[in-house]
Design a protein around this nucleic acid. Structure first.
Lengths: 212, 212, 212, 212
DNA sequence: GATGAATGAGGGTTCATTCAT
DNA sequence: CATGAATGAACCCTCATTCAT
């Protein structure tokens, strides 16, 4: 492999390793993942990995931290906009299939579930920085709809309702990274979130407000 | 350990080993699980495990098969009853928290997700014998409601709607076996399914039919 | 290898490993010594070593501690007897060649010198429990000769004189475990200690006391 | 690091590396010594070492050969002078503490003992070019004293007597490079060789000849 | 000439599996 | 039947050596 001399080169190499590591951990789990396989996936030798990360564990942690934290921003941005609630929900439900397919988060979820008890502090980190933030953003969004009158249904517990909004996302994530690859199927995410959207609108009693 | 002479003794011993194995695999994942730990949990020696299962892999498979298949019966029974759809949904939503807490299925899900690619045929088995059966049962139940007029909403895709009914179950399962044990929290399942129930009724346009 | 079931069997196996380990560490030094070689020397597999010692380092420490401490007793016994000083010196000088040839201490000294800075606390232990004890015993013996008048030379510093009595022992030890094995020579220990004896008697002004 | 262009620059760089190597080998032994540490001690990079020495082993050999051979000259010079034997012994015993402290030989001895069997030919070289030469010089010196009548004691085996003269030197060497650095003590070499001197004079029956 | 990133053989340690007791 | 001592394949990690820059 060419040598990474500059800082940019090194950062690139590091991100290649992280990406290769995520794939290997996703396929095998932490314990069964092999450092030389990660090297092969990243196009470097086993020894090179140790120039970038001091141990398998450190690489694992770096992966979780690198991948998890930045990914949630888009969803927050959508939800925290000030458009009409119905429009925001439109956008969210339309974007989720793509986000689920393109983001590394579903793979990360699979990895974290599998090795949860080996890295509990990473689970906590993930919960706080990804899940709770998402749930809070959804709950706040729902509250905004209630306050503005756009949501007419009685929502006694917006935090729980937020969980119910999110539940199909978790299910889809697991489905796409666990069941689909194994059985060669492909869950129709567009259809799923279309139906979810319809049912949500009824469940929330969502009033479409005319845009003019 | 005393010797298991009779067939019943042996069956008992076997189920102890399976239970111990599930706990160990749940805590560690397949690769990091240790046979001597499983032995210790089951109160037998490492060697004894091999009198009952020819290998770690065989034990793992036996666990999945033993635990997965029988567990789904109750839900099917509830859904396939002929009571009013609203009543059946009442029962289901009321029973789910208990089922989630008492059944070994949530642990099993965690294990299967973690080691999915090591045992793809088990994932397929689980999908077919647990998940698809549940989804089919729910879809059939929803269809019954549509057919009887109890469900008034337009349900263009009952299979997808079934997924949305089930999604909070998967989420709860993962929550209770992954996040709660690690963070010492406890998701309020009763409240979650209460809200889910409320929102479902609105989403489905469920008509309560008087029982007389 | 046959299995060591009883405690005696295990103690025997352990001492075989210690002996094999001493040989390997003596030949290679700590860092270059290989666990599988130690196993081969002891007639067991590499894995078996770890049933008896948790690590290479622990084995090394066990060897030093097991071998070093008990070995010094005979010399102390000779020196602390109450025979005439001249007679005691006779016995000591006569016995030293045999002790040097039969005891594992010379090998141990070689090992400790080579890996001194890797295991400084073992060097301290060895110094205190072997070397200082020997020096003290010799110094006390010399003082006894001075007090009784058998030693007529002026001994201003018995501790230093003790070092000079011992110096040929250290030299011989190193010679027999380093130079002789490599060059196929054999230092004539009897002759060396005979000459040492003669010179010591003159240096100390030793008076032979008639035994009757 | 600046480039070494001239031959003198290169010789200087080489001797820095040798000095750094001796320190590292002395601290760690051959196997545990690390090339990058040697580089750091010498103020050059790992790669530069290979511009001067083709391998770790070659560096080790160069160190032994460079350091060992020239160091013995002073002792030979003292012993081969034609002064009175007593005076020569005075000078020798007075100089030895300083020589032991300043020369790199004690460190070298420690290194050679530790890795003796990895480099047997170096041990042989060292024995022949340092130890035997010293012993021969001392033996010849003693013979001169016997022949001139200055040594009045019966010395049946001057070669063995030479070993006894040298033994405290070896002991001191090991003491100063092994025990003293570890335990923070400092052997009083002046006192040791003062006592050695006194005892030797008695043991040899040395006649002081007036200088006039 | 000098550097240090990259390589990969080597060795300590673990643990599933075997089998003598 | 049950045990746990013994085995050795497998894998993480180190570091001497190479060579692109």
């Amino acid at each position: 492999m060419k040598r990474a001399q500059s800082e940019t080169d090194k950062a690139l190499r590091e991100s290649q390793i992280i990406s290769a590591g995520l794939d290997e951990f996703y396929q095998k789990g932490f314990a069964a993942a092999r450092m030389d396989h990660i090297g092969k996936r990243a196009g470097v030798s086993k020894g090179t990995l140790y120039l970038y990360f001091p141990s398998k564990e450190a690489l694992f942690e770096a992966i979780i931290k690198t991948v998890a934290v930045p990914q949630i921003a888009e969803i927050e941005r959508i939800l925290e906009g000030q458009s009409a609630v119905a429009d925001t929900l439109d956008v969210l439900m339309q974007r989720l299939p793509l986000i689920l397919r393109q983001s590394p988060l579903p793979k990360l979820i699979k990895v974290l579930i599998g090795d949860a008890f080996t890295f509990p502090e990473l689970v906590t980190l993930y919960r706080e920085s990804v899940i709770e933030r998402s749930l809070n953003a959804v709950a706040a969004f729902l509250q905004r709809g209630v306050d503005s009158g756009e949501i007419q249904a009685d929502l006694p517990d917006p935090a729980m309702s937020a969980r119910l909004v999110i539940a199909p996302v978790l299910m889809s994530a697991i489905w796409t990274v666990v069941f689909d690859p194994i059985d060669g199927t492909q869950l129709d995410l567009e259809q799923l979130f279309h139906v979810h959207h319809q049912q949500l609108k009824r469940a929330l009693g969502l009033q479409e407000i005319s845009h003019d």
